[in-house]
Write a protein that binds this DNA or RNA. Sequence first.
RNA 1: GCGGGGGUCGCCGAGCCAGGUCAAAGGCGUAGGCUUCAGGAGCCUAUCCCGCAGGGGUUCGUGGGUUCGAAUCCCACCCCCCGCACCA
Length: 960
Amino acid sequence: MSQTKQTEEKWLRYWEAAHLFEADPDPERKKLLVTFPYPYMNGPLHVGHAFTATRVDVYARFKRMQGYNVLWPWSWHWTGQPLLAASNRVKKGDEIYIRLLREVDGVPEAELKKFADPLYMAQYYTNEGRAAARAIGFSIDWRREFTTVMPTYQKFIEWQYTNLREQGYVSKGTHPVVWCPKDKSPTGDHDRQIGEGVTPEEYILIKYQLDERTFLPAATFRPETIYGVTNMWINPDATYVEAAVDQENWIISQEAAEKLREQEKKVEIKRALKGRELIGKTFTNPITKAKFPILPGWFVDPKQATGVVYSVPAHAPYDWLALKDLQGKPDISAEFGIDPKIVQQITPVSLITLEGYGRFPAVEIVQQMGVKDQHDPKAEEATKELYKKEFHGGILNESCGPYSGKTVRDIKDVLIRDFKSAGVADSMYDLPQSVVCRCMTPCVVKVLSDQWFLNYSNDEWKAKAKEAVAGMKVFPQTASSWFIAVIDWLKEWACARTTGFGTPLPWGKGWIIETLSDSTVYMAFYTINKHIRQHGIKPEALTREVFDYIFLGKGDPPAISENAGLHLDKLNGMREEFLYWYPFDLRVSAKELVPNHLTFCIFHHVALFPRNLWPRAIGVNGMLLIEGKQMHKSKGNFITMKGAVERYGADATRCALLLGAEEMDDPDWRSDNALDLKSKLESWRKFAHDICSSAKNEKVGHLEKWLLSRLQKRITTVSESLEELKTRTALQVAFFETWNDFRWYIQRNGKADAVALREASQIWIRLLAPFAPFTCEELWNSIGAKGFVSLAKWPKTEEQMIDLAAEENEALLTDLIDDTLNVVRATKITPRHIFYYTAASWKHRVYKIVLDKAKAGEILMGEIMKTVSADPELKPHMKDAAALIPRLIKTLNKIPQERKRSIIRTEGINENRVFTEALSFLRERFNSEITVFSEEDKEKFDPKKRAQLAIPAQPAIYIE
RNA sequence: GCGGGGGUCGCCGAGCCAGGUCAAAGGCGUAGGCUUCAGGAGCCUAUCCCGCAGGGGUUCGUGGGUUCGAAUCCCACCCCCCGCACCA
């Protein structure tokens, strides 16, 4: 076992022996409940989980050190389909999949065999996951752990849904889904062989009349074009059927008849016919009652919607092309028994006015784009383009009856509603592209009836959800508008399924609560699961009344206790513990959960709980990339949490993840970085340890004061950043920037034996403890500090330690070095002797005047001159002062406001002394002799007359 | 298409909301030096261009605009990433 591993194991044991992270209610301390969405257990935890969870852990550890009673619980999601699917693949001996389990997940051969049992598989990954979460050092209270198939948990979900339904948030309805006829279940993206991302589209069917009792339902996305119809297109070679559809007589393609059967339509096929049988007949526009011919159109696809298409050549490029084509070939019309004259006479009918186009945009666009005929691929492009333009900018013209003058965009939905209620339109769903199930069966659209929905369309519910967002903190703030957008956008969500693991719907036989819908308020369950486990409370005792009392305070406890057979003390204990911890104070996840889980979580909280128990804060972060690419198990770039911790150690893994990104940016995991961090942490440990063990020098000079002063600023930045979950900034400052302060100190001082340094290190170690807990515990212990650093007091900014003079002193020096280096660079001299000349005292006097004016606001030359000339001591320098002042103003303008303030407050710093005291440091720094003069020194060596250039805070320089 | 987030000096990334402090933090990489038996680690220095004196020039996706002044504000455009549902 490696050194790192041993150290980590040691501290894990100590923490556990001390029950360090087990949190119980303590009225004396402020509580903090932080949560991480429980991971789904069809695979191992990976570094993506680790990234988000480390952010939670860092926050938890930070707050714990600040004295909060912090509870961080963890659990496992087993509900849903994928676990079954995964297990099935093992059972079926799917070689590719099994290899991934073996090689990526590292599942031993003996275990692999048992994966035919999905519950065993879940248990295996849960055990692995728990070990990984422990090993990386998450400060979790494991006493509250559960899985989502436990009966006690399921009682909780039952309670949740019973209440949701009673309040009217659950309803029954129908919904179109992509459906596999063989599996008899919806085919989600993950279950598809072909057709990822394809969703059902709703076509409007215009019921044109063929005769008194027969309809030709033509499918369209643009029902408004009914006012421009000129003819119908039927594919003469395709097979159509005449069928009774919901007691009406329809002619549609054979395929369409099958599809409609899955869409809540009763379909009885009477007879089949070839399309050519219809060609040459006429049909009636149900709105205008005008009659038009049916013409042959080979481009009509019987597999698409109804296989019946009406023609609008003024606005549809395909229709125009097909018409032109047919007009050019009179023999074809004749062949179908159509008088070619009738075809010749067809002219486009305009119905939409579109800026930039004449009356027949389709004709124009075909010309512009040079589309040859209906088989030209550009026809598709032209169609899309025109459709878009007419939808966004088109206005219905005078031919459109009651809809004239309206924009297409505004009127479309109204028009559809009107047509449907007038009985001239219907609708059907179809897939824009083919979808094939993993089982190789082509999918269709099925309209599910008796489907249970969460009513996210409910406006009152939406309003409350928005109120919750407004009332909580969202990290980063920009995510807040996203939540609002999602709340607006969400509509009915099917919350039950017929397959997979999950809690049975309390009132619906055969239905199981869908997995995203059973994971919305379970954070409340953590608060009581400790009791359930410790007291062995049986699921039967967890009745609705029991939960109503625990979570809502409803009912009479003795009676409830009696009825449920649950001891009153236990019941009250759970109520108290819930009230102590709830609501949760922070939930963090990757941004992919914003449009679903996190928003559901908000919805369900506002539905079930009173306002004071609504979420307090939600944090969102990016999705982890591996070496710049998306993490994919099947593509080989997949790193498990366990693997990372084994290779780089827990602390390096945590730090490498946190330094990747913050806010919603996607962090990038680079193994080089993790490796580098590992050695950096180790050398930091040595560095800090050496400082602490060599501390003996009691002197507290200005350098010690400087370091402690800088440290105060670091404490402030780290604390403030963590408060806003800016974990990257916090770690960067706590680790690298603080380290740079120490480096400067050592450079300046030459040695690191001051007692003050040990004090500083102790602050530093605590600042880093949330990020690198193992290294910090080890250090804390090795320097002889008492107790666990995990429980040590978080450093507080001590105002009295801030020493502006010390900081200004060092700033003068760094400025001097920068200037000197600049000169060296420009002149390419290798300095042998550097001479500095600090400004004459009268210049400092002027400087102060200018500074005072600068503080007051605008710097006015005239006013400054007035003040200067009023000063008797400056009388002899009036002429020089006039030249000096503009220079001073220019220099001061370059200085940050904050620095200006500190210069003013530390006025009277003796530059000569500062530089003289740093003489040996400067000598070493430039490997050159250094001499410091004052401009006023009579004896100074100044061959190039540089001294007179000196101004305060910027000595003149001469190098030879 | 709709919604959300972005494009910064080799890379990763701060800065942008509250304009001047910005040639622009920090880390990585690279180069040189110190240390070391050597390697690694550590430490120091440099890292947009020009400059024999602390200065100048050109930069923050592109093009305009506001302003004494723009990486930051406004407008238009281009490009990238994520989500769009019954699925975790």
